[in-house]
Design a protein around this nucleic acid. Sequence first.
DNA 1: TTCTTCATCTCGAAA
DNA 2: TTTCGAGGTGAAGAA
Lengths: 244, 244
Amino acid sequence: MTADRAVETLSYPAPATALDLVERGLERGALVTLFGTCTVEYEGRAASSLGPGDRHVMLKPDGAALVHTDEGQQPVNWQPPGCDHAVALADDALVVTSDRSTPDEHLEVTFETVTHAAAFDGTDPEDLALTGTEADLKDRILEDPALVEAGFTPLATERETPAGAVDIYGEDDAGRTVVVELKRRRVGPDAVGQLDRYVGALRRDLHADTDVRGILVAPSVTDRARQLLAEKGLEFVAVEPPGR
Amino acid sequence: MTADRAVETLSYPAPATALDLVERGLERGALVTLFGTCTVEYEGRAASSLGPGDRHVMLKPDGAALVHTDEGQQPVNWQPPGCDHAVALADDALVVTSDRSTPDEHLEVTFETVTHAAAFDGTDPEDLALTGTEADLKDRILEDPALVEAGFTPLATERETPAGAVDIYGEDDAGRTVVVELKRRRVGPDAVGQLDRYVGALRRDLHADTDVRGILVAPSVTDRARQLLAEKGLEFVAVEPPGR
DNA sequence: TTCTTCATCTCGAAA
DNA sequence: TTTCGAGGTGAAGAA
């Protein structure tokens, strides 16, 4: 990048002109965007084809590629970070490709018209500070175990079992083993199945005379999940994640 | 939009000038992008804060908002479709907000410097044609049920049970009920739990003398999932999804 | 690398 | 509207 120009743009460029901007942008580690009429082909874990339309393409210096239409939060096509971007001319069309291996994946965007091209140079030193996650809910429970039930004593977090790591492992006031599974939001049947796997694994792992209780801690449960909890002999306690 | 200008751009605009472009762009249903130094605050299902840095902001006419850094496939902050975008000036800073209710969510991007602003007008009449999905795998099995096992007869798809809909419901050559759960990729313990829920629900639903087999059909399984299958008395058959 | 689980998951379909 | 499961899920942390 040049020190005095953090952005370089072109409107209605000739394909060769756009090619030059994109090539130089990728070369210097800029974030490159294109808007125009294009088709998109993808082949890799699956395969897709997208006919002509106006879309926004973003090529990131870390190798990520995103193709956005004017609708939806998710890109219509993409490539994850670590891909190699390339740009070329084919029959007067600008062709952008992004490839990777393991797994082999190929994305190809062919612009019949480039409406706009840009290369942005910038830095972002900041990390996102996020609250209200499952980790925050765990901290809240550990600070005040009575939120689960009076007399509950946490003994370990992320305790390993043959079925995976338990969110909070502890015991109740009668000395019975307690497995707590945490969810930051309303839960369905999948979370019950997860808790049941941990409880089952611990029942097999510990001595046969050990009683194991399973408690699902979340803001709320669906009807089907509640029924499943009853069938499996598991419990539910309503707790909101902190941080609003 | 004007018929002869499908894109409108500004480089290093004064805040008031950028405000004007963004307001008009949102008004006419254009896709609006901004690049510059900004801070981002979010509050809703969770809450987050992001200090100053250079980011790319995209406002879609359907109400989606995306904030991208130069790294990662996922936006660092976002708002789903259906939100109301607004833009304003505050102390000579350009402030972009995006709000929705149910749930109440608020996103606020404050630009200390706007490097670039653009409004794109376009249309996208095409739908993505995707192959290699679970639906394609289902079609493949229905065309050739012997891929599951010789003598397997599909009787229904999406058959409802108290635990949810079964991918393929059928019977084997001995007349036993068979529940097939399909996955387009290598499966872990979660898929086994899902199949087990369906099998359990059907065992309760059908007469007690009915034997119910559960078969997981996927390209491959993890070790832990295979062990879980054995514990639950469930089966696995390796089948690749078609397409490619 | 693979495995496992979380996610402001998103998205679509069905009830 | 809520519920449920798929997704080219992505991303993080651990083995």
